[in-house]
Amino acid sequence: MEYGVLSDVCMQVAERSCHPGGWSVRSELPVRAEQYLETKRVERGLQTASLVEYRRDLADFCRWLAGRLRKDPEDLTDADLAGFDRDGARRWLAHLADRELAPSTRDRRWSTISGWFRWMVAEGVLARDPFAGLERPVRGERHKRLPVYLSEAEAERLLRVVLSDEGLTPRQKAHHARLKERDHALVTTLLYQGLRISEAVGLRYGDVDFEEETLRVIGKGDKERLLPLHRRTKEALLRYLATWPGPKKPKAPQDPLWWTLAGRPLTKNAAQVAVKRHLTRAGLWRASAHKLRHTFGTRLAEAGVDLLVIKDLLGHATVATTQIYAHVAQRRLREAVEKIR
C-alpha cells in the first residue's frame, strides 16, 4: 500500500530510501510505523492528541527492540520486525511489567503494539502475529482507579469563585471583571454537559440551539452527538454572549463560541489554564478541567441514570469505559450503609 502525505504528527519523516528487506526512513520510527499512524489517522479519523499517544507508544517499543538488535529505531527493517516472535513478545511484556507504568499506560501500549502487528499481518508485511494467542496482561486494571471528581458543594464553590473577585488585586479585579462571564460559562458547560476540554473549545456558535435547548458536540474521531442543553448552561451562555466586552464575539453559525480579549479564538491550552486558575482559587488544587467531566458522569451515576445513557452523554465508544462511574456510585452507597451503627 502506498501512502502520500503523512499527517502532521508524522512530519518528522524527511527522506525515504528503499533497501533490500524493507523500507528505511530518516525518522524516529521505521516507515511501517509511520504508515500505521497514517492509516489510523485516515481510516479512524483520530485526532492529533490520540496520534501523539500512538506515536509515543510505537517509539517506546521501537527503541526497546532496536536496543536488543544494536541498531537505531529508524533503521528497523521488515526482516527485523518479522524476527520479533512470540518469545520476543513475552520479553517485551515482561519489560513493561518491570517498569512503574500506570495500568492504563501498560494497557494502551499493549493495544497499540499488538494492533500494529495485526495491521502488518493484514497488509502482508508479516506472515504471523507474535501477539496472537497471548493473554492481555493488564485487562481489567484500567478501571480500578476511581476518578477524581468534585462534590456538589465543591462544584458550587467553584462556580461562585469564578464570578467573585475576592482576594484579587485591583489590577486583577479589572481583568477578572471582563473575563468572569466567559469563564463562568465555560466552567458551567464542563460541569453540566460533561464535555472534554477539546470538545468545549471546539464549539461553534451554531452548535448551541437556545430555542430547542440542544448542544451539538463533535467528539473523538469526529463523532457527533446532540446533547440536551442544561438550564444552567443555557443561562450562563446567554449572560456571556450578552456581556462579552472583547473586540470579537460569535455571530455567524461557524464562528468559534469562545474568544479572548485580544480578539482571537480561545485555545485548548488557554482554556485549561483559565479553569485551573479558578480551581486553585477555590482551593481545589488537585482538580483539573477533565475532573469536571468526571464530576458530571459521577453525579449521573449517583442519580441512578442508566450506564448506556451516561455512555451516550459522555460520548464513550463502549460502555466499558463508562463502567468506572458505576464503581463510584457503588462506593458511595457502601459508605452510606456503613454509617449505620
Rank of each mutant, 00 (worst) to 15 (best):
F117Q: 00
L308N: 15
F131Q: 01
R142M: 08
H230L: 14
G297H: 02
D312L: 14
Y205V: 01
V148I: 11
W258E: 00
F61V: 00
A252T: 12
D312G: 05
W92N: 02
R216N: 04
V5P: 11
A236C: 02
R157N: 11
W23F: 12
G88A: 04
P228F: 10
T280K: 15
L146R: 06
E181C: 02
E100W: 06
A262M: 11
V148T: 14
A153K: 15
R56N: 13
E141I: 05
L238A: 12
T189D: 14
L229A: 02
A242W: 05
A174I: 06
K339N: 12
E38Y: 00
A274H: 07
R178Q: 07
M11E: 15
A66D: 01
A301F: 06
A102L: 14
L76H: 04
K71A: 09
K251G: 09
T260I: 01
F117I: 07
A262D: 10
G263S: 12
L81Q: 01
K311Y: 09
G194Q: 03
T188W: 05
L292R: 04
A59W: 05
W258V: 02
A102P: 11
L307Q: 13
E2I: 12
E224T: 10
R86Y: 00
E15K: 15
T298W: 07
L76Y: 03
T112Q: 05
L226P: 00
K248Y: 06
R299K: 10
R232V: 12
L46H: 10
E74K: 09
L313T: 06
L134K: 02
W110A: 01
A336N: 10
P253H: 02
Y36W: 10
E152S: 15
A242I: 08
G140R: 11
H19G: 12
A102I: 08
K71R: 15
V31Q: 07
T112D: 04
V328I: 03
G4V: 07
T48W: 04
Q254Y: 14
L126W: 05
R171I: 07
C62G: 03
R293I: 09
